[in-house]
Design a protein around this nucleic acid. Structure first.
Length: 1039
RNA sequence: GCUCGAGUGGUGGAAUUGGUAGACACGUUGGACUUAAAAUCCAAUGGCCAUUAUGGCCGUACGGGUUCAAGUCCCGUCUCGAGUACCA
């Protein structure tokens, strides 16, 4: 019986679905293990072989853990809200819910394109997902709980004293008792101070406005990143290089009233939490950078002849005596107020000029130094000297206080600025030359010319100066973060609606939890309204009736009991910030999850996904998790213990080389000086005789005819001696080329192809060919290529030895490069087990590596050999023997168990596959047919190739699925050796091997080695200086 | 610019705490079986030199160093990739 993978895989996929083999129970005696994949956005393009890489790895681990006796939670779902579905809706008018459903479940879209659907594609690969727990973020039953968390955030504030989020009621209680003077809370910068009496005197509206300054999600007018092309705001992590991450559209700054998340309250805890999770270092680094903690001091400079003060943040308070000017961001609020009349025109012109420059321009152009003097002077806190106040666009309004104390001797930007505007550069460093560049080395700093700081190091001086500033009341130590609060509103349709309505004063109110979800309304079109409101402004039924407790038609709005609802929707990361917890109890309608479920599953043990989520999803999720931890909803304040970033699978593109069919014939340029490039064009033009049109116009030449370099390589590989290769000249290539297309030259033009009289030149280009048209030896299927696209129907191929060999290059997998490989096709041709094995075999999980379908025959051959081990009967019938296995077979098995177990624990899946191959090769050579070996082997292989393992398991006489069969136990006794083949090396170089018993002492080994004839041959009479013997490892003879 | 990661045959990649470099595959070449192809099996396959076999030399991006011994540790250089970008 041959290995009929198609029917085997179909059979077991149906079996698993029917028997719900992988359904996880929330109450189990077994220890839990939670394996999670970052859920996919279901795009219409479907999956290519790069997508399932992480899913295969996590599935292997999940299956392995089941064999190890764990109760494994391994769910899958869809992050189904998002921009592409909405853009598609705008273009085609189809409801994004419909296209999303088709993308997941399969079907036909409106243009008649058949879509396989994510689910079917995933099922084909034999994943052990518990589909009964599937979630979709766009499902109202799911986003009910996204809205619910939003309400919890709204009703919370951050207490710095207890270092956790607390209910807003407790803040109100404090306000009523003692105002806000004593409260240590994270709040807006501009929050005024008030007493209990003042609080009580506030109107309801004033109270609510005040509370918004404290809530963990708050409505505020803030400067946002507005993307005019997408007609929405974007968060910082959605902008890459100044343009939108999706689509690459420009982004401008704009003031808008938006919901924001006070993630900054958690900055320190988000940083600290990284210490206790096992995540990749690069990922931790990028979160650390994103949070951007810096320690320094806040220093207040008084302004001369003014009641204003300038507050700055600095990490180098020790250099305060080196300050020779101050710089404010052009947008700084004090600029208008402090500018003197004499300077006003210049300052205003500068402010206007910078405002016009886009963020992108400003970032791209960091070299141009610009600024203006305000005419104002600040006063040095210690020397009381006057310090000129400048403005400059190198100071960012959004970081720190938007102002800096400029120390040109210690900061390169300040140095550049000072040089450019001829501002003095006082030196406050002992023995350092700062005439050319600033000295920013903290470690080697010795302060000078600085009054009471002279002679001190960075650390000492910093401590002392902060103490002195505190005495003056002009500063204190401060920790500053780069992290900004996250804008949470999007002006889009396809996202979670806010459970928020607005009263007559425009203040937001939460809808009571029991009326959730507030479902997305129907709209006529998915574009903004004519008045510029977000798409939800098109809805006719989008008002909240506070008495009827339901969404009603807009015309009922009276601002008394019926109010307008929020027109924004939540961003993409809202739904993905809590899904890992929801999987624990996905159908609970009473609560986000039951206490029993969260207490049992706790957190994710293994999380696998792409590194692109480093500062988005993974930071926001940690923030929400910490918030939920504070609220006592979850037992862990980090949601994932271990995280692995799988590498990208790139494509191996195939190239064909097209020669343009117009051949240029020129007069031979004899004696002309071709080195003057300026004349070359003119010369060529003048000497051109004519262009010859060949008889065909799609002519493909081999890569080696394309460039001289390739030509030499080709000659060399065909056995031409190196001396001759060196003598090859361009003319040889031209001649060889002409010979190859001779038959395409029109009869009457043949005379022009005389290289003695004329120069012949051609041009050409490299074109992508579909990788499916190329075989494992890089040979193009010429006939299939001609059928591939109509313009190539009559193409002419210049072959070598009857073959056309394509060029290869590794590129990102994409449709436009024709290098996309579909996993369905691989499953069809080789089976899912082969696909799974091959994806793992390609290389280490975390590394990016190129896909080349050709190599899959290796793992496919392995599966066939594995199958054959169990089918030693007549005509390939299934047959295993109950006889005692040989010693070698036992050894092979246990060696394999040991290595496989170690490798899986280390996520080294590629080496496991090699180990299986070695095992099967050895057992094959041993002609092993013993049940005692083959039964455990099936379990070992089962996480990687589950279908074949199930089939063999059943043939071995089992009636239950293999999925929970106990993992074979490694026993050392089978590996115990009595002797070892020692490598004998001389001066570190291995010369020969010598078999010796392992129980020999060092001296006995040395004696035996020295006595050996080959040792004497190597030494040639010399006496070794030293003999190193490492028992069980190596012998090295020095001398 | 800064931070992090990586450079090993024609290709993907192995090599546990420093201890036989190139496991396992792909590809290539030769052979067996076959009318033929596919499939399968066997052999060779880092480079160079030598050959009657035994062999010798060089080799893990480059240049140094530590060590009995370095792909692995240390210093310097180069190249590539990822992230970040005036963060005071």
């Amino acid at each position: 019986m041959h290995y009929d993978f198609n029917s085997i895989e179909k059979k077991w996929q149906e079996y698993w679905a029917k028997n719900q083999t992988f359904k996880a129970e929330n109450d189990s005696e077994k220890e839990k293990f939670y394996v999670l994949d970052m859920f996919p956005y279901p795009s219409g393009a479907g999956l290519h072989v790069g997508h399932p890489l992480g899913y295969i790895a996590s599935d292997i681990y999940a299956r392995y853990k089941r064999h190890k006796g764990f109760n494994v939670l391994h769910p899958m779902g869809y992050d189904s809200f998002g921009l592409p579905a909405e853009q598609y809706a705008i273009q085609t008018g189809q409801h994004p819910a419909d296209t999303t459903r088709v993308n997941i479940e399969g079907g036909v879209d409106k243009e008649g394109n058949k879509i396989e659907g994510y689910r079917k594609q995933l099922d084909r690969m034999g994943f052990s997902f518990d589909w009964s727990r599937e979630v979709r973020t766009s499902d109202p039953k799911y986003y009910k709980w996204t809205q619910w968390i939003f309400i919890q955030l709204f009703n919370s504030w951050y207490n710095k004293a207890t270092d956790r989020a607390e209910d807003i009621e407790s803040l109100i209680a404090v306000f009523e008792k003692e105002g806000n003077a004593t409260v240590e809370a994270v709040c807006d910068e501009d929050t005024p101070q008030f007493s209990a009496g003042e609080w009580k005197a506030f109107s309801e509206r004033e109270k609510q406005e005040m509370l918004l300054k404290y809530r963990l999600t708050y409505l505020a007018e803030s400067e946002v990143n507005w993307c005019p092309a997408l007609k929405t705001v974007l968060a910082n992590d959605e902008i890459v290089n100044g343009v939108s991450e999706r689509g690459g559209h420009p982004v401008v700054r704009k003031k808008m009233t938006q919901w924001s998340m006070r993630i900054t309250a958690y900055a320190q805890r988000l940083l600290d939490g990284l210490q206790k999770v096992d995540w990749p270092q690069p990922l931790k680094d990028s979160q650390t950078n994103w949070i951007g903690r810096s320690v320094g001091a806040q220093v207040t400079f008084k302004l001369k002849d003014s009641e204003h003060e300038i507050s700055v943040f600095t990490t180098r308070p020790d250099t305060i005596f080196g300050v020779s000017f101050m710089t404010l961001a052009p947008e700084h609020e004090l600029v208008q107020q402090i500018t003197t009349e004499a300077q006003r025109a210049e300052v205003e012109a500068y402010v206007e000029a910078t405002a016009k420059r886009s963020e992108r321009e400003r970032m791209a152009d960091v070299k141009t130094i610009s600024g203006a003097f305000t005419g104002a002077y600040a006063e040095h806190p210690f020397t009381k000297e006057a310090i000129p106040v400048w403005i400059g666009d190198y100071v960012l309004a959004g970081y720190g206080t938007g102002a800096v104390m400029s120390v040109p001797c210690g900061d390169q930007r300040d140095h550049d600025f000072a040089k450019h505007f001829n501002i003095p550069i006082p030196n406050i460093f002992e023995g350092v030359d700062i005439s050319e560049e600033a000295f920013a080395d903290k470690e080697n700093t010795v302060i000078a010319n600085s009054d009471f700081l002279n002679g001190l190091s960075y650390k000492e001086a910093t401590k002392k100066v902060i103490a002195e500033l505190e005495k003056l009341g002009q500063g204190q130590g401060k920790v500053n973060y780069r992290l900004r609060d996250a804008v949470f509103s999007r002006q889009r349709y396809w996202g979670e609606p806010f459970p928020v309505y607005y009263d007559a004063d425009g203040l937001p109110h939460m809808i009571e939890e029991e009326y959730l979800p507030i479902t997305l309304p129907e709209v006529d079109k998915y574009l903004p309204t004519e008045t510029g409101e977000p798409p939800l402004g098109n809805a006719t039924e989008w008002a909240w009736d506070t008495e009827g407790k339901q969404v009603v038609a807009n015309d009922k709005i009276d601002h008394k009991t019926v109010f307008p609802l929020d027109l924004n929707t939540m961003p993409g990361w809202a739904g993905s910030s809590q899904y890992f917890n929801r999987y624990m109890d996905p159908h609970n309608e009473e609560a986000i999850f039951s206490k029993e479920a969260i207490d049992y599953w706790q957190d994710v043990d293994l999380y696998i996904g792409g590194s692109e989520h480093a500062t988005g999803h993974l930071l926001y999720s940690r923030f929400w998790q910490k918030f939920m931890f504070d609220k006592g909803l979850v037992p862990k304040d980090e949601f994932a213990k271990k995280l692995i970033n799988q590498g990208m699978i790139t494509g191996t593109s195939a190239f064909v080389y097209r020669m343009h069919s117009k051949i240029t014939v020129s007069q031979k340029l004899l004696g002309e000086d071709l080195s003057k490039a300026d004349d070359l064009y003119e010369l060529t033009r003048k000497s051109m005789v004519k262009t010859v049109q060949l008889k065909k116009n799609q002519i493909f030449i081999p890569k080696c005819f394309f460039s001289f370099h390739e030509y030499k390589k080709w000659k060399r590989s065909n056995g031409m001696p190196e001396e001759q290769v060196k003598q090859l000249i361009e003319a040889d290539l031209v001649l060889e080329r002409i010979k190859s297309y001779e038959h395409l030259i029109p009869e009457e033009e043949k005379d022009f192809f005389d290289l003695d009289k004329y120069s012949i030149s051609f041009s050409g280009d490299a074109l992508h060919a579909d990788v499916s048209l190329v075989d494992s030896s890089d040979e193009l299927d010429v006939e299939a290529f001609k059928k591939w696209r109509p313009e190539y129907r009559d193409a002419e191929f210049i072959c070598q030895n009857g073959k056309y060999i394509v060029g290869r290059e590794v590129e990102k997998m994409s449709k436009s490069k024709y290098n996309v490989v579909n996993p369905d096709a691989i499953c069809e041709e080789y089976g899912a087990d082969s696909l799974r094995l091959y994806e793992m075999f390609l290389g280490p999980l975390e590394q990016s590596k190129p896909w080349n379908t050709a190599g899959i025959t290796g793992v496919h051959g392995f599966l066939k050999k594995l199958w054959r081990l169990y089918h030693s009967g007549a005509g390939g019938a299934f047959e295993v023997s109950d006889a005692e296995p040989s010693k070698e077979s036992w050894k092979t098995l246990h060696k394999t168990i040991k290595k496989v177990e170690e490798d899986i624990e280390n996520f080294s899946f590629n080496t496991t596959v090699s180990t299986f191959m070695i095992c099967v090769n050895e057992l094959g050579a041993q002609k092993c047919t013993n049940r005692a070996i083959l039964e455990p082997l099936a379990i070992l292989v089962s996480p990687y190739a589950p279908h074949i393992a199930e089939e063999l398991w059943e043939k071995l006489g089992h009636t239950e699925s293999i999925s929970e069969a106990p993992f074979p136990k490694f026993e050392e006794k089978y590996l115990v050796e009595s002797s070892k083949e020692y490598p004998i090396s001389f001066n570190g170089k291995m010369r020969f091997k010598l078999e010796m018993p392992l129980d020999l002492s060092k001296d006995e080994i040395e004696a035996r080695v020295m006595a050996h004839i080959k040792t004497q041959e190597q030494l040639q009479g010399r006496t070794p200086k030293k003999v190193i013997v490492v028992p069980g490892k190596i012998v090295n003879i020095v001398g």
